[in-house]
Simulated assay, not measured.
Amino acid sequence: MKGVLFINLGSPDSTDPKDVKRYLDEFLMDERVFDFPYWLRSFIVRGIILNTRPKKSAEAYEKIWWDEGSPLIVLSERLKEGVDKFTSIPSALAMRYGNPAIKSGLQALKDQGVTEVLLIPLYPQFAMATTETILVLAEELRQAHFPEMEFTSIPAFYSHPDYVRVLSNSIQRYLQTREWDHLLFSYHGVPERHIRKSDITKSHCKIDGSCCQTPSPAHQFCYRHQCYQTTKQVAEYLGLKPGSYSTSFQSRLGIDPWLKPATNKTIDQMPEQGIKKLAVVTPAFVSDCIETLEEIGIQAKEDFIAHGGEELHVVPCLNDDQDWIKVLGRWIDQWALAEQNA
């Protein structure tokens, strides 16, 4: 029997600093997120970061928390429920960090008799700290607890025509009644070393402005290339003029080199460039979360206005958009049919 496991990033159980601390510990101690040797990772995370950051992060979560709970969790649940109406394949929802855990999601599918699982990491672009860590943990859990199961994973869909179409249409719908001078595509940042570590050729990725434009097998796992491709294809779909849009990377942590340009610096500089009404879309996320609602929707908006901007419009993520739900349902049915005919 076939089943589907949707997997998103995760969220604290509440805005209590203790829950936030527990969540950040699981997140930052992941060797594919904070990819330092264990002793150094533990010293930095548990010896420094977790002594200061949980309180500040808890305050940020409080600003965007819904009555129903974490926006990321609530929106992911709505997405799953929506897809369930378009396909007969049983599904479950899990988070890489926090609850519901991947193990519980797999157990829920097993309890329904599922033995063939389609893993759907809810990230359009591949990255060590997102898709890879999900697939690695899922395989570890399969070997330890679910040896009877077989896994298939959906590939990164950053340039899939269906995804480009629904993302582009959602942007167009949101902005058609709003005035804007520039559209900024803000993606979650990663350390530059992650790009090089993901380079299967071990020589292509130089992050020099040209390697992402030069065809290479490395692009299959190159987060930077895939982000720029999403921007390019959406811009082409929408017919955006050169200079009316750009790409940046947000959420930097630590002092190591991260992908540039940085979203916060980019936004702060825009008013002096004549951009007074800015629209921001965040295509690294399919569900709104603290990075979109608080970091962009509150912090970035305040900073933009403080630097002379007038309006900052945050385009909602796809969330439970009906067209997006239908696309996922179709992908699932296509997988099930292909497996059946194999």
Rank of each mutant, 00 (worst) to 15 (best):
I154T: 10
L167K: 01
Q226L: 15
F146W: 02
I275K: 00
S251F: 13
Q340F: 06
S57L: 10
P215N: 00
Y245T: 13
S244N: 13
I89S: 04
D16H: 05
Y23K: 01
S159F: 10
Y187C: 04
C317G: 00
M149S: 04
L119C: 12
D13H: 03
S210E: 02
E140P: 15
C222F: 13
M1N: 15
A92E: 03
L240S: 07
L137H: 12
Q176A: 01
M149L: 04
V234Q: 12
C211S: 10
K197T: 12
I171A: 04
V166T: 10
D181G: 02
W258E: 07
V327F: 03
M95D: 09
K206L: 08
F27H: 12
L106I: 06
I171E: 02
Q107R: 15
R142Q: 07
Y23D: 05
Q334D: 13
F185P: 08
G98D: 12
K276M: 09
K21Q: 14
K103M: 03
K21I: 03
N341V: 14
W335E: 13
V136T: 03
L106H: 01
T52F: 13
E310D: 09
P283Y: 13
P242I: 11
W66T: 14
G274S: 07
E26S: 12
K18P: 03
D84C: 12
E291P: 04
T15N: 07
L240T: 12
K202G: 13
S203N: 01
E139K: 14
V327S: 05
R193L: 10
T231Y: 04
E302Q: 15
T201S: 11
F36T: 11
G329N: 01
T214K: 00
D181A: 00
D303S: 06
T231M: 08
I267D: 09
Q322S: 15
P261F: 11
H313M: 07
V74F: 05
Y174R: 05
A279S: 05
R178V: 07
L183S: 08
I332F: 06
N99S: 05
S57C: 01
A306W: 04
W39P: 06
R165S: 13
T130N: 08
A60D: 07
L79G: 00
Q107C: 02
A342C: 15
P90G: 09
F304G: 09
H204Q: 10
N169I: 10
K55S: 11
T263L: 01
E339T: 12
Q112R: 01
S88D: 11
P271V: 01
I275A: 06
P215H: 02
D162T: 01
L106W: 12
L137P: 08
A58F: 12
E68C: 06
T177L: 12
A336P: 14
S251D: 09
K241G: 15
S170Y: 04
A58T: 09
Y228M: 01
E116Y: 02
P283L: 02
D320H: 08
A129I: 02
D35E: 15
L109Y: 05
R46V: 00
A284H: 05
A101D: 04
E148G: 15
Q213E: 15
E236R: 00
Y38I: 03
L28N: 08
P147N: 06
H313I: 13
A108W: 00
